[in-house]
Design a protein around this nucleic acid. Structure first.
Lengths: 237, 237
DNA sequence: CGCGTAGTTGAGTCGCATCAAGTGGAGTGG
DNA sequence: CCACTCCACTTGATGCGACTCAACTACGCG
């Protein structure tokens, strides 16, 4: 909860505030506040009255839903520069939990403040709609995959996506740059940790991936892509 | 493509234009145009450059995605008073096909016009975001169901939802008021028409539903609800 | 009357969830 | 420094839901 020095240039690369001039960015920044969230800390909880919306400066946050019967579903991983909790502005409460998977730094605004900013600078509203549109497309992709694709394909797709969003080049490939458990992958792809574990074991013995505890390295992205797109598998070399 | 008489009061009950005064509604209406779409007619096609957004006055439209490999997915049925094709304002092209399942009447605006209206009347943008938020919630429900629930539950849920949105009271229950095939239900719930057919046959012989060709009547909504929520099944009466 | 489209129903198969142990590394306390 | 205890992960065995393949029926329309 440390108060950090505000700096409008932080907002510059954020899609939500694209196209705003320096004065507007200054105004936005003045209405928000920065804080630190420790690893494992909760930013907001599912069902809570939505009073704030958030932008991640550094770290990684996961958004997770819990159903009435205890089933978990991982909605998304949020990286630096991305907004989260914005949906709550238009709904009764937060639709999921937000938990820091690594130490994180975020900016936050009250919902009322952000609504006023949107009315003052309609461009923010337009940008937000574009972001919501993208998320709708994403979710539709996910629905389509769940409806029509095998588990292995979905896991391959999820892993490639994570590598792209949060990959870090290492000696033998691209490593997901934050702790990611089999359970997380299972919740992202709508399967069980058992099945994910089996799939990763198989891939590992084929040399497609490597990794350890809560940590995965994509060694052969092209081979994974072939699985994700259901191309005929190349020679097992 | 008949030109129909514009009437601002048509917009009054629409969520997208909630909170606008008469003058604003008048302005919105003046920029749009009405037209007729015959049953089976296509309003827009997936991938087309998005140039228009739409509101349904009367009839029923279905929004459908087609994947590269030919798989179909039914995204939603649109009823009178609802907007569709709005998402396209923020994306490259229309994310799906829009096809009239009955003779329909719609209003349409060009995307540029609507964007200008949003900048002039930011309330429209706020309302649109709220609608997008609801759709996101819907899709998340769908993802959750696909991940965790059996087919029968999903079909029961879909049917109840349709009955609620587009139900018409008839002598022996509530009838879905537009032609709905098993294939449609299958595409909505992520299964095959075979499985849907089996399920409906079973329900029909238990007296939960009735129906014929492209037509379904919900006879015992409470029993269906029990299935949708996975409650212990009551006595087979 | 014949054709096309919508729906039904059976048999066979298999992907994946479920149940059930068991392993190994990381952190903790003695 | 070593034993203890989690917790993430692995791996086998088993069963079943639902997809696939394949006929077949019935309705509606020209």
């Amino acid at each position: 909860m440390d108060k950090l020095k505000p700096d409008p240039s932080l907002l510059k690369p954020m899609r939500m505030f694209a196209g705003l001039d320096a004065a507007a960015l200054q105004a936005v920044m003045e209405h928000g506040q920065a804080r630190h969230v420790p690893k494992g800390g909760t930013v907001f909880k599912q069902g809570d009255q939505a009073t704030t919306c958030h932008a991640l400066i550094d770290g990684r946050i996961k958004i997770q839903h819990t159903t009435l019967d205890g089933q978990q579903m991982l909605v998304q991983f949020v990286g630096p520069g991305e907004m989260y909790g914005t949906l709550a502005m238009f709904l009764a409460g937060y639709p999921g939990d937000a938990v820091a998977v690594t130490d994180s730094v975020e900016l936050l605004w009250s919902v009322d403040t952000m609504k006023n900013l949107m009315l003052t600078y309609p461009q923010i509203a337009m940008n937000t709609m574009a972001m919501l549109g993208d998320r709708l497309e994403d979710l539709q992709t996910r629905v389509r995959q769940l409806s029509t694709q095998r588990v292995e394909r979905r896991v391959a797709y999820a892993l490639l996506r994570l590598a792209q969003q949060a990959g870090r080049a290492v000696s033998d490939g691209v490593e997901i740059s934050f702790p990611l458990s089999r359970q997380d992958l299972a919740e992202m792809t709508g399967t069980t940790l058992h099945t994910v574990s089996r799939i990763l074991s198989a891939w590992e013995s084929d040399g497609l991936t490597a990794g350890g505890r809560q940590q995965i390295v994509v060694v052969k992205p092209d081979a994974l892509l072939a699985i994700a797109e259901d191309l005929p598998r190349p020679k097992p070399c």
